[in-house]
Write a protein that binds this DNA or RNA. Sequence first.
DNA 1: CCCCATTCTGAGATCGATCTCACATTGGAG
DNA 2: CTCCAATGTGAGATCGATCTCAGAATGGGG
Lengths: 383, 383
Amino acid sequence: MATEPGAGSGSRRPSLKDVAARAGVSRASASRVLGGYGYSSQDVADRVMAAVRELGYEPDRVARTMRSGKSGVIGFVCADISDAFFSSAMRGICDVALREGAQVIVMNTDDKPGQERDATRVLLSHKVDGVIITPVSVREHAHIAAITGAGVPVVSLDRQLSDIGIDSVVADNEAATEEAIRRLIGLGHRRIAFLGSVQREEPPVLRVGKVRANVVGPSRPSLDRARGYLRALTAAGLPVERELIALVPHDAPDGRLEAVAAVLAAEPRPSALFTADSYMTRSAFSLLSERGIAIPGEMSLIGFDDLEWTTLVRPRISVVVQPAYDMGRAAADQLFAQIARPDAPGADARAGAGARAGAGAGRGHRTVVPTRFIERDSAGAAP
Amino acid sequence: MATEPGAGSGSRRPSLKDVAARAGVSRASASRVLGGYGYSSQDVADRVMAAVRELGYEPDRVARTMRSGKSGVIGFVCADISDAFFSSAMRGICDVALREGAQVIVMNTDDKPGQERDATRVLLSHKVDGVIITPVSVREHAHIAAITGAGVPVVSLDRQLSDIGIDSVVADNEAATEEAIRRLIGLGHRRIAFLGSVQREEPPVLRVGKVRANVVGPSRPSLDRARGYLRALTAAGLPVERELIALVPHDAPDGRLEAVAAVLAAEPRPSALFTADSYMTRSAFSLLSERGIAIPGEMSLIGFDDLEWTTLVRPRISVVVQPAYDMGRAAADQLFAQIARPDAPGADARAGAGARAGAGAGRGHRTVVPTRFIERDSAGAAP
DNA sequence: CCCCATTCTGAGATCGATCTCACATTGGAG
DNA sequence: CTCCAATGTGAGATCGATCTCAGAATGGGG
């Protein structure tokens, strides 16, 4: 029923003014009826509702944003939306946003600081109600501080920016990796290689003795996973061998196969590989099958991230699963929680904040999402 | 350099009024300097630019939208952004949007008509400059007509809505499938099965004799691929056997394995499988390897969509590649082309449109993106 | 019968950028 | 010296929803 818009009159979207005119009341009265505040007589209410139906009126969100300062839009800033992790997380974010009646603007950074800065600026000028971001850098976060500085809630996803008091949602990368390595050790492996990607800015990890000291502070998945690896080794009293650790820059994809080859060339050759992200898992599996190295007969393999192919290849790959969708949901939940209570953690009260110890959700609430280990066929007993 | 916003004053984002005040000129003058129109003296221009720098002023896009009616935002409505095809397409759309200085709002429909209708309404009320959509239904397109009716450009992606004069970007599904089937026939296969997904609303395909007559009209990838299959068979003079064709509803994922099993149970068993989408390819490969059926020794396989696992499994799967990223780009290019020239193909001049035959880009320009066949190891000679 | 509280209504301001229009200044040509 | 074009500037309107505030009805108690 009702009248589809665009049928009769002069094409323009009907505004509240049109509704008011048709109902024979003032804009204020129409607004009161629709907004459900103040007083309005039954008669006026009926006429307004009728006019709304007849005209197919729908409020203009832009004007509403203008007036209220709230847009009902949030931003998601990630490296690359076509990446499986981010697109799954995005879906989680969208689902929560839908529940909250909000929309999502996506921006890709390709892990370039400049793009990220631009993205935050644009989002701010769109008056977004909040931002979920996977920060390019844990060091340069001036742009991110600028967002909270503008009173806009921020949640960081996958990477952590704890030192500037920003909520974050991360997987328990360190514990998950530690557990995976412990399993390999339990299977009798003594020489276990670690293959991961790393951002250029990250310092070379290592320095075994001080591992525990480094646990606190800015966090990136790759570093945390490396820490878990080191922890497991040292806990088992195994030596950490430099030649069994390869961290290739994330933006040099062809370095990955070389890294795997280099690790395989170590003497004596390791008996197990842990690949700390999906790209590495793929490269490792690829090279191993190309060289005809039997899994898990000659080489065990455990990877991070549960991609669909890990169940299609033979042997099926044992992996640590990171619930990307749930992480997206969690981040969005946290963001909307912040939006709901505008007591602004870290906003303008920043200058003299030092003293307050924060009752419950102090500064920078950190949600750690549990991972799950899926045992399949790629990790076996050491020869 | 410059002053980071939020440092000194009372927290609010600086507006043009603040800039004007600081420069000691009127808002109109400041706007003229920034907008580069009208006259302004060098002195005023300098003072305004200085004020902009000092205040870290950035125009409010919401206010600009309000005034101009153009938001610099486009909408992307798809079934599920976590799907590899859509997230790749999304990336293409984002890249073009970035070039055009626009942003993208994403909405998921899960292929539910209601969600799609809501999504279009929300986007319209956000005053988006255009919409890229993968329509749920080729039959109910009232909402989509409502978008163009509001003067907002629309491009449909992957699925085609030619009858209401909307631009579309699709892969050459029919030709690509026909070629793939022809290859199988060339390898000596006579019994070739077709496995695809289908929307509930789609009529059962078939009716071999009338295939050519059905080519024109609303198009969905699965139907087009089925048509290509039929074409190839009939062109080669091969019979179309009902039991070798399985179309399972897209929303009944567990039906896929059953469908594969059913086709394998046909007597005599087919010697080749063509899987028309990535889900089917996965199910088929999965079942074949589970049953220990040798590929391509006992069964050849060609699939649609180039997922990363198709090169990791043995044998590597030969596939028809659909350039999702490029399709996203193409759709966005087309959308921005429409936005640039507001001569509105199919807008309000719809009532008496019949006569106009359209010079160049008439009504509903259809871009067909070529696919590519990647020959790998899963299709061999028939036994 | 008066007065005040309650209910109801509309004029107008607001958000921020942009644009029109009217009104200054100039300067140079006639 | 006059006049008009070219140049420069600011007041105010506009986009649409919302909210404040002043004021108009109405009704019941004193």
